[in-house]
C-alpha cells in the first residue's frame, strides 16, 4: 500500500448509500418496528432509542477494533497509510461511543429512572471512551510524523488489551444492562438494518477522515 495515496474525493459512493440507509433506518426504527410492550401491557416508545443506541455502540467497538488492527500494522510495517486509518477510526469511534453513552443515558432515565448506573457494560464502555480520548490527546500533543504514529500505535495496542481486563475487573458486580434475547422478529429486522446502516455511515466517515489525514500529511 502506498503511504502517500490520497483519495480524490472526500466522499465516495458509500456516502449516498449511507444517506439512503440512514433514512430507511429512521423508518425502520420508528415505523416498521412494533412498539415494545411493558410487563403491564403498556407500550414503551422510549424503547425505540435502541435502534440508535445499539448501532452506535456497535460502530464504536468496530471503529476501536479497526484502530487496534491498524496500529499493529503500523508497528509491523511502519506504514503511515495504516496510521491514517488508525487516527481516523479512533476519532469516529469516540464520536459513536459518545452517542452510545448519551443515548443509553437517556434510555436509562426512562427505563431505570437513572441517568447512569455503574453496570459492567456501561463502565467498560465509559473506560473505553476514556482510553481513546487519551489516545486522541496523545496524538494531538505529539508532533506529527513517524514518531507520533509509533506512539499512537503503542498506546492503541496496550489500550485495546486493557479493555477485556477492565470488563473482567468490573464484572464482579451484578449487571443490569438488558441482554439481546427475546426480540420480536420485526424488531430484530429493524435493529439489524440500523446496525447495517450505521456501519455504512462509519465507512463513509472513515474515508472522509482518512483523506483529511492523508492531505494533512501531504502538505506537511
Amino acid at each position: 500500500m502506498k503511504d502517500d495515496i490520497v483519495p480524490r474525493r472526500c466522499f465516495g459512493p458509500e456516502i449516498w448509500l449511507a444517506g439512503v440507509a440512514m433514512h430507511l433506518a429512521l423508518l425502520a426504527g420508528l415505523k416498521y418496528a412494533p412498539s415494545a410492550i411493558s410487563a403491564s401491557g403498556e407500550p414503551m416508545e422510549f424503547q425505540r432509542i435502541m435502534y440508535f443506541h445499539v448501532p452506535s455502540a456497535w460502530v464504536a467497538f468496530l471503529a476501536f477494533f479497526v484502530t487496534f488492527v491498524a496500529s499493529i500494522a503500523v508497528l509491523v510495517k511502519r506504514s503511515m497509510w495504516w496510521d491514517s486509518i488508525a487516527t481516523a477510526s479512533a476519532e469516529i469511534g469516540i464520536l459513536f461511543c459518545t452517542m452510545a453513552l448519551i443515548s443509553g443515558s437517556i434510555w436509562g432515565k426512562a427505563a431505570w429512572n437513572l441517568w447512569w448506573a455503574w453496570d459492567p457494560r456501561l463502565t467498560t464502555t465509559f473506560i473505553l471512551w476514556l482510553v481513546y480520548a487519551s489516545y486522541v490527546i496523545l496524538r494531538m500533543s505529539t508532533p506529527s510524523g513517524e514518531r507520533s504514529a509509533r506512539f499512537g500505535a503503542v498506546y492503541a495496542t496496550i489500550g485495546f488489551v486493557s479493555v477485556p481486563l477492565t470488563y473482567v475487573s468490573v464484572k464482579l458486580g451484578a449487571g443490569m444492562h438488558p441482554k439481546s434475547a427475546g426480540l420480536e422478529p420485526k424488531m430484530l429486522h429493524a435493529l439489524l438494518f440500523c446496525i447495517g446502516a450505521f456501519t455504512v455511515l462509519y465507512f463513509a466517515f472513515l474515508r472522509a477522515r482518512f483523506r483529511l489525514e492523508q492531505l494533512r500529511r501531504a502538505i506537511q
Binding site: 477492565t166 473482567v168 475487573s169
Partner: peptide, 16 residues
C-alpha cells in the same frame, strides 16, 4: 500527559 495515558490502562488493576 503521563497520568492521562497511564490511568485508563491501569484502571482494571487498581479496581482489582
Amino acid at each position: 500527559l503521563l497520568p492521562v495515558l497511564v490511568l485508563p490502562i491501569i484502571l482494571p488493576l487498581v479496581v482489582f
